[in-house]
Design a protein around this nucleic acid. Structure first.
Length: 568
RNA sequence: CGGGGUGUAGCACAGGUGGUAGUGCAUAUGGUUCGGGACCAUAGGGCCGCAGGUUCAAGUCCUGUCACCCCGACCA
């Protein structure tokens, strides 16, 4: 492709709408343009990269025996009502109505559809195992689209679904996908880690997320510094520690604390540390109101609470509800005399003596409150693991980093097959539910993650495996006939060899061409300049500052070598 | 959905106390340049997000509304 003809409107300045590096560079390098919040168009270079990533995914999925199909993105409501998720997804689903008043949605995911396909066609254990996948556009009306393509409302996802006759078979299908995912993200040049994850509303028995380490990641991941344990903080358990203080229970006492509400204010007011406090947070869980107690310096782990309550809807209670159950303004909730359906108490609160809690009376707190004597409830692990906690696996010390979730693999089990009656007949002639797994990769997000991890101040540094073009030939002076002639020769020959190559034949100054080449991140640059008189051109890799003089005739092997080294 | 912020030329932004809109980059033309985003000259380009209101007069003040961004909440 000739750069003079390429639709590549690069931007010199950083668009003000973009905050993160990948978002800025995707805009600047003319990969994408925004249409609406969380909705993007892909320009030629962006599309090429997207297709490259898809191709890597496709190859590795096929290698593990998965078969590609393509479902519609426009889905009738019936299947969703059957599984119960028409309501569960709620406002996150783009719903629409056809001219005959029938309800549809734009697919946010496809468990129901794949289950439906299978139940209509598969009747016997002989038809399994089976793994079907698609690479297709998904729609989710996110509450808050973020960081460009990182969290958008329309995005491309590879979703695969496995169907097995036994739990052992599911394990095998799952392991195949685990293997495929590792290869895929390796080939994409990502520094990533597979971590244990919560199964969430999807249900099921096990799941792993593939996390790319990045400060802009929306997930927090726990890593053990001494063993291989890694998990989403949502998932990572904390354990009941020994009694934290041996002091005796003191007498309970009500203390006036006018306008002192937050833990910070309380710490100042009582002149103590936040470990001495227990905060009581009020939530609405489906039709119940529940309170959760954790130590003042801890965060409630909502996933753990949801799993305990087995509820679907879960949110912080509004001020009015708080008033109703506590009888006080927000900021004075406590366990004693609170009118909630459930009171959940974290281990640490149970094991700390003489805590300071809200009095359920505006302007008052209670000191020397003790579990068992003064209040009771369901005790368990309801807080986030934090720095200073021990590794759940080996007891070593942990670190917590942010990560971008680029892939997620799930053992679904029979959740959907039972609800939707997807069964098969086994060897003994018995009817059984099909055992399922599901496996997703966010293609657009993977693209953004690659840029987050592969860039410098000049622009993107694409790994060769997914670069939109592998080589860019830059004739320095378009007025120099010899430079142009040789550049054209190199360009034509490389393309004939099957190497995707650009030639920057624009009548621009060298600086402009170099800067654009760096911005769009082409891995190999061949500069044809003055030294062409001696049959020499320059060979430069985007990820290195080294410029090598090389004879024209040696270029071709050199390019092939570099490509071979970088693509397994 | 709560909190904060921004809407002025393709992009980035400036426009005290109201007086009919500007800068840089980009674009077009001519010239000089030509190996890391050149310089000079000239030119084009604006429902100042939208709708009301106050006023002789609104980019500027008031009200409403929409869009976008950020934090939080939320999210297979």
């Amino acid at each position: 492709m000739r750069v003079s003809k390429l639709f590549m409107p690069t931007l010199r300045e950083v668009p003000s709408e973009a905050e993160t590096v990948s978002h800025q560079l995707m805009l600047r390098a003319a990969l994408i343009r925004k249409l609406a919040s969380g909705v993007y168009n892909f320009l030629p270079l962006g599309l090429r990269v997207l297709r490259k990533i898809e191709e890597v995914v496709r190859q590795e999925m096929n290698r593990e025996g998965a078969q590609e199909i393509l479902c519609s993105a426009l889905l009738p409501s019936e299947l969703w009502k059957e599984s119960g998720r028409w309501e569960v997804f709620g406002p996150e689903m783009f719903k629409l109505i056809d001219r005959n008043d029938r309800e549809f949605c734009l697919g946010p995911t496809h468990e129901e559809i794949f289950t439906d396909i299978i139940r209509n066609e598969i009747k016997s254990y002989k038809d399994m195992p089976l793994n079907l996948y698609q690479i297709q556009t998904k729609y989710r009306d996110e509450r808050r689209p973020r960081f460009g393509v990182m969290r958008s409302r329309e995005f491309i996802m590879k979703d695969a679904y496995s169907f097995d006759t036994s739990w052992e078979g599911l394990d095998e299908s799952f392991n195949k996908m685990y293997r495929a995912y590792n290869k895929i993200f390796e080939r994409c040049g990502l520094d990533f880690k597979a971590v244990e994850a919560d199964t969430g509303a999807m249900g099921g028995t096990g799941s792993m997320e593939f996390m790319v380490k990045s400060d802009i990641g929306e997930a927090e991941v726990v890593f053990c510094t001494s063993c291989d344990y890694a998990a989403n903080v949502e998932k990572a358990p904390t354990f009941e520690a020994e009694i934290l203080s041996s002091e005796d229970m003191k007498n309970i006492e009500k203390v006036e604390t006018p306008n002192v509400r937050t833990i910070e204010e309380l710490v100042k007011f009582f002149n103590t540390t936040s470990e001495k406090f227990a905060k009581t947070l009020i939530y609405k869980a489906d039709d119940k109101v529940v309170a959760v107690m954790v130590r003042g310096d801890r965060d409630v782990n909502e996933t753990k609470v949801i799993n305990q309550l087995k509820c679907i809807n879960f949110e912080m209670a509004d001020a009015e509800t708080v008033k109703r159950v506590t009888g006080a303004d927000v900021g004075f909730a406590g366990p004693i005399g609170i009118k909630v359906d459930e009171l959940l108490i974290d281990y640490e609160v149970k094991n700390t003596k003489n805590m300071i809690v809200g009095a359920n009376e505006t302007g008052y707190h209670i000191i020397n409150a003790n579990f068992g004597r003064d209040f009771n409830g369901i005790v368990g692990d309801f807080r986030n693991i934090t720095q200073g906690d021990r590794c759940p696996k080996c007891g070593g010390s942990i670190t917590i980093n942010r990560g971008i979730e680029v892939g997620h693999i799930f053992k679904l089990g029979t959740k959907y097959s039972e609800k939707m009656n997807a069964t098969f007949v086994d060897e003994k002639g018995e009817q059984k539910p099909i055992i399922m797994g599901c496996y997703g990769i966010g293609i657009n997000r993977t693209m953004a993650a690659i840029i987050e991890q592969n860039h410098d101040e000049k622009g993107i540094i694409w790994p060769i495996s997914i670069a939109p073009y592998k080589v860019i030939v830059v004739p320095v002076a378009m007025k120099d006939d010899e430079q142009v002639k040789v550049a054209e020769e190199i360009y034509n020959k490389l393309n004939d060899m099957g190497v995707e190559t650009l030639i920057d034949d624009r009548d621009e100054r060298a600086g402009v061409k170099f800067n654009d080449a760096d911005l769009i991140g082409i891995p190999i640059r061949i500069t044809v300049g003055k030294k062409i008189k001696d049959g020499i051109v320059e060979f430069k890799l985007r990820n290195s500052s080294e410029v090598i003089d090389i004879k024209v005739e040696d270029i071709y092997n050199r390019v092939l070598e570099v490509i071979k080294e970088n693509i397994k």
